[in-house]
Design a protein around this nucleic acid. Sequence first.
DNA 1: TAGGCCATCTGGTCCT
DNA 2: AGGACCAGATGGCCTA
Length: 209
Amino acid sequence: MSYKLRNEVCTLRAAETLCSFSPALSKPLQETGGTSRDSGGNLPGRQQRMFGRKTSGEQCGPRGRRRMKANDRERHRMHNLNSALDALRNILPALPEDAKLTKIETLRFARNYIWALTETLHMADHHPHTAASELRSPGSVSSLEWDSASPAESWSGATADELSCIQTSNGHNPTTLSHHAIVLIPLSTTGAGVSTETSLCRKKEVWVS
DNA sequence: TAGGCCATCTGGTCCT
DNA sequence: AGGACCAGATGGCCTA
C-alpha cells in the first residue's frame, strides 16, 4: 500500500468515526477535511475501536458540546496545516508523482532548498559573469543526509555557487524514494579544486537519474 | 515485531 | 467567553 493510500484510509476512518459521534460534524469535515482522502473505502478495524472509545465529546451537555466544537476546530486547524505542507511540497523540486515527503522531511528539505537558493543568489552577486554554459559533468560525490538539520554545515564540501539545480529520483514506488536521493548538481565557476556534485540523500545512498 | 508516521482527541494556556 | 495554539496520549497502518 502506498504512503498516500495509507493516509487515505486513515483519514477516512477518522472521519467516519467523527460522524458517528455527531452527524452534524461530518459536513465541515467533508468541506475542509480537504482532499480526496475523505472519500471511498471500507471501514476496517480501527474504526471499530474508535467507535467503542468513550470520549467527552460523546457526552451531552454544554461541556460535551464545547469539547466537540473544540475538536472540530482543532481538526480544521490541522487540516489547514496539512494543506500548507502540501502546498510546500508542490513547490519543492520535482519529486516523483507518488513520492510524498513526510512532514519532517518536507520542512527540512524546504529549509535546505531555501538555503541552497539563497547561497546561489549570494554567489551570483559575487560572480555575475558566471554562465550556465559552464556546467560541468558531475565528478566525485559527497553524500549528505537528506534531512540534514544544518545545510550550511552539511554542504560545506561544495561552494555555494556550485549548487545550481536539483534532481530527484524518478522511482515510481514511494518507498523507493526513501532509499534514493535528491541531488544537487553544482555549477563550477572556476573549474578547480571544488567538488562537482553535492547531494541531499537519505541512508547514505546516492542515485542519479 | 519494533519503529516510524499519521490523524484525532484532549486539557492546558494564552490571546482577543 | 470563546477561539487559537500546543503538546501529550492513543491507536491504526505500513515497512524493514
